[in-house]
Design a protein around this nucleic acid. Sequence first.
DNA 1: GTGAAAGCGCTAACAT
DNA 2: ATGTTAGCGCTTTCAC
Lengths: 342, 342
Amino acid sequence: MKMAITIKDVARKANVSTATVSLVIHDHRRISSSTKHRVRSAIEELNYHPVRSARGLASQKSGNIGFIVTDDHFSRSEPFYTQIFLGTEFQARESEYYVLLTTVPADFDERQNIPRFVLEKNVEGIIIAGKVPHKLVKLLEDFNIPLVFIDYISSQVTHPVVMIDNVSGGLMATEHLIDCGHADIAFIAGDIQHPSIFERYQGYKMALEKAQIPFRPELIVIDEPYPARKYGYHAAMKLVSRKKRFSAIFTCNDAMAIGVIQYLKEAGMPVPSTVSIIGFDDVEANLSLDPPLTTVRVPKVDMGMEAIKLMTEILQKRPTGPRKILMPVELVIRKSTCINSN
Amino acid sequence: MKMAITIKDVARKANVSTATVSLVIHDHRRISSSTKHRVRSAIEELNYHPVRSARGLASQKSGNIGFIVTDDHFSRSEPFYTQIFLGTEFQARESEYYVLLTTVPADFDERQNIPRFVLEKNVEGIIIAGKVPHKLVKLLEDFNIPLVFIDYISSQVTHPVVMIDNVSGGLMATEHLIDCGHADIAFIAGDIQHPSIFERYQGYKMALEKAQIPFRPELIVIDEPYPARKYGYHAAMKLVSRKKRFSAIFTCNDAMAIGVIQYLKEAGMPVPSTVSIIGFDDVEANLSLDPPLTTVRVPKVDMGMEAIKLMTEILQKRPTGPRKILMPVELVIRKSTCINSN
DNA sequence: GTGAAAGCGCTAACAT
DNA sequence: ATGTTAGCGCTTTCAC
């Protein structure tokens, strides 16, 4: 590879030392503004850009931020984590970082496959999106690397985290149903242990309470293992088989809602004419579902951006700002909910 | 940051020079297997991992591969490019590379925002997925960095590329329709200039020819700007308004097919009972469409993997293997096509 | 306010 | 077959 412009060339051209150039690059205050100008124009003229590896080696900072998500989360058809990742990418560019994505198996296994970027000291911090095996988190903690979580927090430890305002969302969703005149509102969820899911459930209960609608356990199906379509389908089947009266369902996420709708359709209970459905995530925004799904929108891209902001603050040792960010959600009314006509 | 294990520690422990350790790491042949063993166990015992930045600086190789896709491609709801990216990630891990993703605006603008990773010499090669502005390619070429394309090739230049076997796919799709007894088969596409789309069109024509079915221009709608849902909807409307007889449609991709189906549904022409539809990409694999879409599956993850393989071959200067890879496609029969009952 | 110089951890000639 | 050593391009004390 032919030699490119280095800091030396700039130094020579601007008649200063390389140290000065470096200081100018970092906008150090103790450089007179006249030299700053001189150096900056030299940089411009030569179209100089510092080489990352060199900076990394000298400063012990790779300039990279890791992003970990389980493979099934990332490759699933709903682009939830993809959007979050995209957000990190946008913000990282802004902050002059690179983000290194790696997926880990959901059934992460002992001290084998620690992400290479931590071993090679190639990331300054790591963003963990969604639920990951607790073992992994433990391992990562041993490396003493800043961790920021998104939409999940491994219990026991306190790391900065970007969360969804799930309680408000759950409240919002349920209240929308109530506003539509529904009182027999079922709740369907998978992986109820998951903090986000659990919080949505809390929002559901709060809404009932506020409206003085009694909580009816027979309208609750929360023993599905995972909030995915097929389990939504299954849960709906279970719910229907109980032969209890209900006119609306709050499903813990859109993926499950799709499964629910599919089952109801097959069971001759069209949505929304016989049952109203509301989801959560707004992941299928323009997926042209039939009917279009009323849901609670989660600002996915923004969440990724916030995570990077949090991380850069930490990396720059500015202990400002909160360590736990609650992202606001928004009700999106489409066609899967309607006025209760009973 | 506290000092970690370096190559020196290993050298000391194994009673060799750092040079030897380095050679062992790269499995150089001129090291006796006895010292190799000794060094390797020292590495193991110390749990040593070379620091990326240092390697990068010394070898002038960042160990990173760039991945460029336009923002609208990556963030669209169909996870087509996401899957491809995931494939690169998998294979890169295998080959000990990192992949740095960056999105560029679809309306890429002059010499402003050249991806930072090329400026900072932080990638050894770049993978370009999908159609990108030609200006960008031109700029990239000036940097004399190896480029590998996926599913698109900027005309005029010859770079290695991983393509879909679109012609076969188009043939396959159309023949499936013909096998179902259809003869009045429409073709709908957007961005017909796009090589992949154009090739699918060729496959369509070939199939007609083989079956001795006359080509009827009145069944062709290929002037939509972009193969997205809304244009599918629009194209279907246009097709229907011509009041020509047709019993099946080959749509250039799944996204458009969804729009087509939606229009037909609204127009009282249910799929597949009145019209059969076949798409391309199999992007909506488990999107629970109604009806489930018959389509031509494209091996997205594999394409990403192949691109990295190609790239690593190039980076290792092994000029072996073909420079143009055609990925095989596969017919996936679901419920949107059926026997012609007319 | 600026420069000299010593690394950062590794690779790759060149010696031996 | 292995060791010596000079960098790679930048950052960062420490002098001046």
